[in-house]
């Protein structure tokens, strides 16, 4: 019965329509029951429920080449700056200039990649409108905007021999910021809702820095003289091992629903190749690092492995963003527990 009364005075007890109850659906009448009895169940029980299997998230709009490339180049640059500064101190002269140049070149390219990936490249400078502690990209941009001039200055001074004092400061600044440059991108991708990235947040920096170190070691191996090879070989072996281990630990710690993204064909292929090349590079560095050719092979392998890691992780993220189960599964499990 409608609670409204209309007396000669007027209408009382009105209630807004939004308070209406939901509908009751299609009832099942005897005929329906009869008809459906014995008819096969039309929908198999679903393991998890989703909206037509559509992703919950909107997958990143980033291009693999630009963004994975930027992660790789940033890592290479940051670690190379550290290598350059240390090598300068410890006297591996043959490494210094190439490392500085690599850092400068890589950071320049990485910035270019970043800008290229912007939807509105002409607005790149808007990155410096604000300094947002909550945004790894903002923090990273500000770090990069200090780091890049330093790295470029260090390389410039190194190559030209000009302004040595500035060069030294620049080298120091670049080395000090290098680890930040190499690691902040790990925070950048972890700081998303993409399960394969976010849930890997504890290990991601380790993967990124070891991958960065690998790449820097690779650069060093390519460039160094025989006499300077030992530290780079050690760095290469250590970082390659770390990269493999960190990446494996990362995958294994993930919820299976999330980890499966790393086993999608594309990321799986890239990461397997990365692991193989890392292991190969480390082995060659160990066994044949005293030869120039061996170093070249090892260095190339490590640089490639580092890049492949980033692309692998990138694509794993894309796959997991597209997979509703990766988002819903762990959340459901969390709620259930």
């Amino acid at each position: 019965m409608n609670q409204t009364r209309i007396t000669t005075e007027g209408l009382t007890n009105a209630r807004p329509g939004r308070e209406a109850p939901p509908g009751s659906g299609r009832p099942t009448g005897s005929a329906d029951r009869e008809r459906r009895r014995g008819s096969r169940r039309r929908r198999p029980a679903e393991a998890f429920r989703s909206y037509y299997g559509l992703p919950v998230l909107n997958p990143p709009v980033w291009e693999a080449r630009e963004i994975a490339g930027y992660f790789f180049l940033g890592g290479l640059a940051g670690a190379s700056s550290v290598v350059a500064a240390i090598a300068q101190r410890t006297g591996q002269r043959s490494v210094v200039a190439p490392a500085k140049v690599a850092a400068a070149g890589a950071v320049t390219l990485s910035l270019a990649a970043l800008v290229k990936d912007l939807g509105r490249p002409t607005r790149a400078l808007n990155m410096l409108r604000v300094l947002k502690p909550t945004s790894p990209m903002s923090v990273g941009t500000w770090v990069l905007s200090c780091y890049a001039p330093a790295a470029i200055g260090a390389a410039g001074s190194e190559l030209t021999g000009l302004l040595p004092a500035v060069g030294a400061t620049a080298t120091g600044v670049a080395a000090a910021l290098g680890p930040a440059v190499a690691s902040y991108t790990a925070v950048l991708i972890s700081d998303t809702a993409v399960p394969a990235w976010h849930d890997a947040r504890r290990e991601m920096p380790a993967v990124f820095v070891s991958s960065a170190a690998s790449a820097a070691a690779g650069v060093g191996l390519l460039a160094c003289r025989d006499s300077d090879a030992i530290p780079l070989r050690r760095l290469a072996i250590g970082s390659a091992a770390a990269e493999i281990v960190a990446e494996q630990v990362m995958e294994r710690r993930l919820d299976p629903a999330v980890a499966k993204a790393y086993h999608e064909p594309k990321p799986e292929k890239l990461l397997r190749a990365s692991r193989t090349l890392s292991a190969f590079g480390a082995a060659v560095a160990l066994l044949a690092g005293h030869h120039r050719v061996g170093r070249r092979v090892a260095g190339t392998a490590l640089i490639a492995a580092s890049a492949l890691t980033r692309f692998g992780i990138f694509h794993a993220g894309m796959a997991s963003a597209r997979d509703p189960e990766a988002t819903i599964g762990p959340q459901r499990a969390r709620l259930a527990s």
């Binding site: 019965m1 409608n2 609670q3 209630r15 329509g17 939004r18 209406a20």
Partner: peptide, 12 residues
Amino acid sequence: FQWVMEARARGA
């Protein structure tokens, strides 16, 4: 149809 909903909200 809002008026149908209005009635339903009031118990119709």
